[in-house]
Nucleic acid binder design. Structure first.
Lengths: 191, 191
DNA sequence: GTCTATACGCAGATAGAC
DNA sequence: GTCTATCTGCGTATAGAC
């Protein structure tokens, strides 16, 4: 198939950008991991920035798939929000090693003053809008976006510190606190 | 004075590492900003990692000074914790541009698998222990470290999202929520 | 579509004159 | 203590054979 190599490059670059960072990952790194020559790259991508765009688009598509799955599997909006919160535990090992894939990429690109930073931030927007919709369905109306951003921020902070200290107990404790916070919010709704 | 140039190098490197990241900052960047030649560097530092160590030590010293100041200026432990929370607003512009200097350095070094990562995390420990002491004085006893980590995590998440979206309103809203959380915790202490 | 060979610049680092 | 000149390797990117 015409796009098989291209897909393998993107899959590998996605992983390496996460584990090593975008700038620290060279064409040679990706090429040797994929098992192709450096020169072959440029048949599929013009520049390194092109690969970055491809990786971000890949992540956007994968994230949308995951959110759709949660939408189907979750019985009610609160359950679905808990799916989001528990991803911190599900991906705990990777997060302690490499941080959150969304947050670390956005931060790196911000520092590099890279044109693709807003593109990376749109990964956050995917979660933000999905969470907002769940809160709306719970009846939070105008507050929904603020609650979505709040919990998104909480999860980012947990990822950053769990990574800095490689602390699994902290991560699990904070997941419990976030679930308790969600229950509190729902309780407050009913006065 | 013998160490004047060394100090200027560290001051400049500190700033550039924050604004551009450690790896993206070259000797040439620092040299031109300081106004010295590249060769002159190696009289003061053997390697780039030596500069990183110097920068981290500089940040450790500056952070200790700031925490000591808060200790003196704050009337009670709750006020001091509010000083910590409000640094997000005080440094809001820089945070929206470059993120939190502690969190972003720790994350970058974690991805680079750099030997100095625990060293960078010790900057977090400085805040963590200072916050823990404030919570202890408020009477939280065993829970003090967990509360310190909680609020440290919250501030990290706020910095990451405020940077990703360049969102000042979110930052201020979350600072208010963190202060409200603090008041709640103190209220719960008295049953 | 994949390869080898190569261009070119900049990175970190060193030697040695002043 | 500061400089200029230089080394060496690796980064992205290109040219052209197969």
């Amino acid at each position: 198939m015409a796009t098989a190599t291209r897909d393998r490059i993107l899959e590998t670059a996605d992983l390496l950008f996460y584990q090593q960072g975008f700038e620290a990952t060279s064409f040679a790194d990706i090429a040797s991991a994929v098992g192709i020559s450096r020169g072959n790259f440029y048949h599929h991508f013009k520049t390194k920035d092109d690969i970055l765009d491809g990786v971000i688009n890949r992540r956007l598509a994968n994230t949308e798939q995951m959110l759709d799955r949660w939408e189907i599997e979750g019985d009610d909006p609160a359950d679905r929000i808990r799916s989001f919160i528990h991803i911190l535990i599900f991906n705990g090992e990777k997060i302690r090693k490499f941080g959150c894939p969304v947050g670390t990429l956005s931060s790196e690109l911000a520092k590099l003053n890279h044109a693709a930073q807003p593109n990376a931030a749109s990964l956050f927007t995917l979660f933000r809008n999905w969470l907002r919709r769940q809160f709306e369905r719970l009846g939070f109306a105008d507050k929904s976006d603020e609650l979505a951003m709040h919990i998104l921020g909480r999860s980012q902070g947990v990822a950053t510190l769990a990574n800095a200290f490689n602390d699994d107990a902290f991560l699990r404790r904070e997941v419990d606190l976030m679930c308790a916070w969600l229950d509190d919010q729902i309780g407050l709704l009913r006065h």
